[in-house]
Amino acid sequence: MSGPPLLEARAATRQLAEGVVLVRDVSLAIQPGEFIAVTGPSGSGKSSLLYLLGLLDRPSRGEVMLEGRDTARLPAAELAGLRLAKLGFVFQFHFLLPEFTALDNVLIPIRRLGRLHGAAARDRAMGLLAAFGLADAWQKLPEQLSGGMRQRCAIARALANDPALILADEPTGNLDSANAAGVFDIFERLTREEGRSIVVVTHDASLARRATRQIRLMDGVVVSDQAQG
């Protein structure tokens, strides 16, 4: 792999105030177009690592560099701005706002960023929904959607501002195998065809094998980091 990494962790350690170490001395670089699966037993620090990489949390020691820039000491508002413009999140639960339609949910980050307005913003959101087979469901509330549709809508929202990196925390944890495979199909498409990077935390070994690189964690330490398939 070549070129500057999109995101890089350098000896990043996350320790709780009580002394519990969640992530210890993790160094890794994410290149554009990579599809990385993070696996490991529960409690191994997979999610904590993801929050560090996603700038939701700060390392206690070490650095997290986004596009070559250290983020550990940036003010909270600036981190929020970076998340808004450059990163997309997908969680185990869809976390769609229940009062808003599928379309409005996808529009929220677009409107917050404010780069697109009016019809342009709406076209972008509708395009994303259509890409994930939700073209006819745009005016439905989350509770009117099936589990798979909700998660696809959440992915559409994560892609709203055209991020280079998508971070997914057990995105298939609440889905049946068909829907779970569908989500990974989407992830493959996003990396191969659109050149985005994806980091997905999962404990499903068969799904993890579909990634181009697998990182195994144990007790907050990287025990293996291999390119695959």
Partner: peptide, 16 residues
């Protein structure tokens, strides 16, 4: 609480 968390993870600031 969850909606606030998701808004923050999406990039809403404390001020927002």
């Amino acid at each position: 609480t969850r909606d606030i968390a998701i808004l923050k993870s999406l990039g809403f600031t404390e001020g927002d």
